[in-house]
Design a protein around this nucleic acid. Structure first.
Lengths: 303, 303
DNA sequence: ATCCTTTTTTTGTCCAGGACAAAGACCATG
DNA sequence: CATGGTCTTTGTCCTGGACAAAAAAAGGAT
């Protein structure tokens, strides 16, 4: 006589794609090949994934991001998968990141995190704050994510607070009319914004005139904006998730479409050490190196 | 003897989906039903969309967003489509938005836009800045977008600068330990962040203790974060693009999963005027109304 | 051993063409 | 006018097959 409330209602294939980042095509082909997931069906034959299968898919996604192959892990139980994630507990120490801030993220202490970040900013100044606090923290968060110690909402919380602090500071430096004029953005498949903000903070602190278009700018629009806006440099940021191969192709294509007078700087994991394959593009290996790039540019272009 | 550089190289179906927002399935079914687009094929039979077809698809997408039906417009030429967009030139005036700021956006004048925004903030204070400058500007930008007067990079530029100013101001207000504690975010299909930031600015200025998770928080995570964090209110923001029907379903589901002691506030075009269908949820009709909601909550919960 | 090249396997994306339900347009009736 | 019912349009999902890019394994040379 109980009416079953649909609390953990099953998800459509579109919702699963959204929540796990695994495409519909891939979900169907996994079902065909490996026998998982095997969703239920609604009245009209559409797949309905129960919550526990979605949860397992999220675990699988993480392990694949760590380099595991689907065929090897997809048959394992959720418990076994969790164990595999924990085994990956990296031996290398969590960098030089401030562990108290990491704790705030883990415990959802947004207000305390914001306060700690602001204090660090005041103490270190914008440039050192970006290089010595945000960058290591970023790395530590990335590792904690891999290890499964933090989840979507913790990462959101972290990103929000860092953005608040960095953007506030960037605004306060508003340099106008200085050189070089740097246009910052990412390619359409890259949606991580923090790398971009860290570079903007670093360059603005050096007196460059930065303009960020945020993430995901289509290539033709980027070309137009760079030329019409009279920019000297276009800066692109790549996260570790960006396929190295595609980064190189995209950068070379951009190099062709932009006049040689506009420099291209690229930074992030995906392009690290690829100088040889990227003629005409300045690879920026770290935040500190972006300052070098700036100095070089000024030496070459400002009498 | 010329080597043809692939400047306007054709795009894969995945790239077209990314750039136009039209799904692969829809692209294929349009081709089948209406005879457009008809892409070329590569060596292995995969679709390759030339740049001009992609451009036309972007026009079509805009007109559909304005309420046109595919069958009626998909056969028209690019010129005819452009004319239709311009005909839609709304008669109603561009709200009370500052036209000089709008000009800065059109002309890619990022630095000037930032300066003007900061000046307005100083003059008006955070709350009036959000309600009287950002909100009308948002609307004006939305209309200009519909009319085809601005494009992707202009909107990116605008969003970036407003974020810089709003986030800086929000950070400066950092109220800790006050009540109510408000958790702000959007549902997984909503990615517009400005509405959220405007609410956060308004509430923070009233001394509420706000925490934003940014956009696209999965429902189970939202539930956990709200309960574990001891929040009094969960605030959701919806843009005009969010399907009204889905907004209602999602909100009702969230209402079921949250304890009655946690209030839900929802704002934005998609929920405007739906009070009747959303029992137990406070519809916030404007930024000013969010202050009302705050006052009501305090009257009811703080002795 | 280590490094580089070639073959084999794995894996994600794409294709065709059919089906269906939700949303929109249309129409008749209160 | 509004309101409810029918017809049309439209986007999403389905099956099952194919293929190329990436990864792994195997082979060979230094």
């Amino acid at each position: 006589m109980e009416i079953q409330p649909k609390l953990d209602s099953a998800s459509s294939i579109a919702a699963v794609e959204r929540d796990t980042g695994i495409s519909k095509d891939t979900l169907r082909v996994w079902e065909r090949r490996y026998g998982f997931p095997v969703p239920e069906r609604d009245a009209s034959g559409d797949r309905l994934y129960p919550a526990d299968q979605v949860e397992k898919l999220r675990l699988i996604r993480r392990l694949i991001d760590q380099g595991k192959r689907p065929a090897k892990i997809i048959g394992a139980s959720s418990e076994a998968l969790l164990a595999m994630i924990e085994v990956a507990n990296t031996p290398r120490q969590a960098a030089a990141a401030d562990t108290s801030m990491l704790q705030y993220v883990r415990l959802h202490r947004g207000a305390e995190l914001a306060a700690a970040l602001r204090q660090a900013l005041l103490k270190q100044g914008l440039q050192r704050f970006a290089a010595e606090t945000v960058a290591p923290l970023n790395e530590a968060i990335g590792e904690a994510w891999m290890r499964g110690e933090i989840d979507v909402p913790e990462e959101h919380l972290y990103t929000e607070q860092v953005q608040n602090v960095l953007r506030g500071a960037i605004g306060a430096h508003a340099g106008v009319g200085t050189r070089p004029r740097v246009l910052l953005t990412t390619f359409p498949d890259e949606e991580h914004v923090l790398g971009l903000l860290m570079v903007e903070a670093t360059l603005v602190a050096e007196g460059a005139c930065c303009l960020s278009l945020g993430t995901r700018t289509p290539l033709p629009d980027l070309r137009t904006a760079a030329i019409d806006g009279g920019f000297d440099v276009v800066g692109l940021s790549f996260s570790a998730a960006y396929p190295s191969r595609q980064a190189i192709d995209d950068l070379l294509q951009l190099r062709m479409t932009l006049p040689a007078t506009i420099a291209i700087w690229a930074g992030g994991e995906a392009v690290k050490g690829k100088e040889k394959r990227l003629p005409g593009i300045r690879i920026v290996s770290s935040l500190a190196d972006s300052v070098n790039a700036l100095t070089e540019w000024r030496a070459a272009h400002l009498a």
